[in-house]
Design a protein around this nucleic acid. Structure first.
Length: 466
DNA sequence: GGAACTCGCCAC
DNA sequence: AAACGTGGCGAGTTCC
């Protein structure tokens, strides 16, 4: 690559980034203190109610016999001892340090109805303690001031703390609503969030210059294509919910894990989980279809047999080989070249001028430039938008950032101007400033109504910029 | 009584 | 041969 950013460019990005983040931190984010208090109490009542039910169960009675007054339902250590030592159940999964696991997946597999109550309690406590309580602890005069750090992450991404603004629930409906209901714009303002679409894949395009990857990103559907191959479908259409699930499986069970460096063994197991909730447009369950295609064998009650898992794993192995050796061979070549360079020199350089050095495993090393550079693109835009906001004396302010997304606390009168500016900076100015952006960036936006909390966001079509 | 650890779980 | 990248944080536990 002939275009080479310098270390000084990297330094400047961090320097200006810190200043822009400091302004966002000072601005802060409004929280509904009364709501947090009320909801916190409400969750406590709910949890107590669940505790009362749990106390009636056999599991609890066994637990009490062993621990007496030291019994603590939040202690996974105690729970593991009860399940795997006292009750002598076989742990379906072990933790890194080799003890029987008590995470959600494991407890569900154990098929003990009482454990569902523990999971429900865990979920509510997570919302109460990690989010609502943290907001209350950190708020000053109704505003939290999350920090955005540029000095903590090996890949030169950012992190956030006090409180962490980058892990507020989004996927789980209840957790999302309960947590984000606490986050508000300034009075009379509205929250606008703009995020890059598939930025890591696009950055991978810039590094690898893989023609097929570029084509698929712009015009194709790599997740759908992979689902078709993995589940041996004739075709796939997202408009059928069962087939949409299979596409999700292709994406989250294969494509993303592969890009992070996972291998066919884990992917196969993952994909079988996705297959359970997938079906064809004619209603055929995905697993049944897969059996018809000879990908798995099922027991009478519809479970995948051990032999079936082996068969499917072999199938996924072949698809993995094809994925890297044929489909994205340019990407593979880049991985080999980059790993070799690192082993020879002890470091690699990012397109943004940052140097990655020190001991790294292969997956870490190959992920770093992509993750870091994706974030630097957001950071560059954040700085630009912040500068324009200063120059033009906006009443609107940047107030936060989540790796590939920026949030503004927006004056509705300025909404169109703000949206246009962000659209222009992200999609036009960025690739002009950094010509190694050989594929066009794209952004999507969400907007909340005026004076409405973050859980009310709706898709917002950004104005066209010529 | 605090530091350092494990585990689980939220985000990208 | 091995096999998922980057974080923060609450709670429990262990160590000193």
């Amino acid at each position: 690559m002939e275009i080479q950013a310098t270390t000084y460019d990297a330094y400047r990005l961090v320097h200006e980034g810190i200043l822009a983040f400091a302004r966002a931190e000072r601005h802060g984010i409004r929280v509904d203190v009364e709501y947090c208090k009320k909801k916190r109490a409400h969750l406590t009542r709910k949890v107590n109610h669940l505790y009362a039910k749990l106390r009636e169960t056999d599991l609890y009675k066994t637990w009490y016999k062993v621990y007496g007054n030291k019994l603590n339902t939040e202690s996974n250590h105690q729970l593991a001892y009860i399940l795997y030592t006292v009750m002598k159940m076989d742990p379906p999964k072990k933790t890194k340090s080799g003890k029987g696991s008590t995470d959600e997946e494991t407890l569900q597999q154990l098929n003990v109805p009482e454990l569902d109550k523990i999971l429900e309690i865990r979920k509510l406590l997570k919302i109460r303690d990690t989010y609502l309580n943290a907001f209350l602890k950190e708020q000053v005069h109704g505003y939290i001031h999350p920090f955005f750090n540029l000095h903590t992450v090996r890949t030169y991404r950012s992190s956030s703390d006090r409180p962490n603004f980058q892990n507020i629930p989004k996927r789980d409906e209840q957790a999302m609503k309960t947590s984000r209901r606490a986050i508000f714009p300034r009075p009379g303002h509205q929250i606008l969030a703009v995020d890059f679409s598939g930025i890591e894949v696009r950055i991978a395009c810039c590094y690898t210059e893989d023609e097929k990857l570029i084509y698929d990103t712009l015009h194709g559907d790599m997740h759908g294509d992979m689902a078709v191959e993995l589940f041996k479908l004739d075709s796939l259409n997202k408009k059928y919910p069962g087939e949409k699930n299979l596409r999700q499986g292709g994406k989250n069970g294969f494509v993303f894990p592969q890009f992070y460096g996972d291998y066919y063994g884990n992917c196969a197991l993952n994909l079988l989980e996705w297959a359970k909730i997938g079906s064809l447009r004619d209603g055929t369950p995905a697993l049944e279809h897969m059996q018809n295609k000879g990908l798995v064998t099922l027991t009478k009650d519809g479970k995948v047999t051990k032999k079936g898992i082996e068969k499917f794993t072999e199938h996924v192995k072949k698809i993995e080989e094809d994925f890297w050796n044929r489909r994205y061979k340019g990407y593979k070549k880049w991985k080999e070249k980059t790993w070799e360079e690192y082993q020879k020199k002890g470091y690699i350089k990012f397109l943004t001028g940052f140097t990655y050095k020190g001991v790294a495993r292969r997956n870490e090393l190959l992920n770093a430039p992509i993750q870091g550079t994706a974030f630097h693109s957001l950071l560059w835009c954040f700085i630009e938008v912040d500068k324009i906001a200063q120059e033009e004396e906006w009443d609107t302010a940047l107030c936060g950032q989540i790796h590939d997304e920026m949030l503004t606390d927006t004056n509705p009168d300025e909404l169109e101007r703000v949206a246009k500016t962000i659209q222009r900076v992200t999609c036009k100015d960025l690739p002009e400033a950094w010509p190694w952006w050989i594929i066009s960036p794209e952004v999507e936006a969400d907007l909340c109504p005026v004076d409405a909390s973050w859980n009310t966001k709706q898709e917002y079509k950004l104005p066209e910029v010529e």
